[in-house]
């Protein structure tokens, strides 16, 4: 009986250790939560993938993010999207309105917006241009790109932890979120769609002199 008790205690301790490792000390329960925590602790470098889009002249994504030396809030979209991207779009429209208000008040925060398509096959520059017009995007603040090379697109999604799942009805589900990048092209923080104000405040703070 003593041996049984000992083994049971050992098994319970093993389970506790496994659960603790899995949940980062019981802070997160999902892989998305773990990804956000890991990004906050260790910024993620952006891979050098070539991008193209209307009015965008940069050899690769890190160079695009470095332009102007500011902070960029990034989201992932596909232009045929009818569900979550619409709320992402309206979320970005509200962010754009806030940034325009900043500019009008003469306290430009040097924060910009970038939408990256993960449907590079379909979303050519013309589609992105039309989508940008539909979203009333201000080209100085909000730009749209795709990654033309499929292998590079996969590498980018993999590095940034963006998982895209076809839903079988011609659409995609993906872990939509607001990704904040610094001027060195590093992903510093990932915010939920509902945390739009927090993402903006963090981006403003990051642009305002933080390293």
């Amino acid at each position: 009986m003593l041996r049984t008790a000992l083994l049971s205690v050992l098994l319970l301790l093993g389970g506790y250790a496994a659960a603790r490792w899995l949940t980062h000390d019981f802070q997160v329960w999902t892989d998305e939560g773990a990804r956000r925590l890991e990004v906050a602790l260790r910024p993620v470098d952006t891979p050098r993938v070539a991008v193209e889009g209307p009015g965008v002249a940069a050899p690769d994504l890190p160079a695009l993010l470095a332009q102007g030396g500011g902070v960029t809030i990034v989201d992932f979209i596909y232009t045929r999207c009818q569900s979550v991207c619409l709320s992402l779009g309206s979320s970005f429209q509200q962010l754009q309105a806030a940034l325009q208000a900043d500019q009008a008040a003469g306290r430009s925060a040097n924060v910009r917006l970038l939408s990256i398509s993960f449907d590079g096959v379909h979303d050519g520059p013309a589609q992105l241009q039309a989508y940008a017009r539909g979203q009333h995007a201000d080209p100085a603040l909000w730009r749209f790109v795709r990654v033309p090379a499929a292998a590079q697109e996969q590498a980018l999604l993999h590095r940034l932890g963006v998982v895209v799942v076809p839903d079988g009805r011609g659409d995609y589900e993906h872990n939509a979120a607001l990704l904040v990048f610094d001027a060195h092209g590093r992903m510093r923080r990932v915010f939920d769609l509902a945390e739009q104000q927090l993402a903006l405040d963090y981006a403003r703070h990051l642009a305002g002199g933080a390293p």
Partner: peptide, 11 residues
């Protein structure tokens, strides 16, 4: 223990 740990969605 095994079943409890494997019910964490992250697994």
């Amino acid at each position: 223990v095994v079943l409890s740990v494997l019910m964490v969605p992250r697994v």
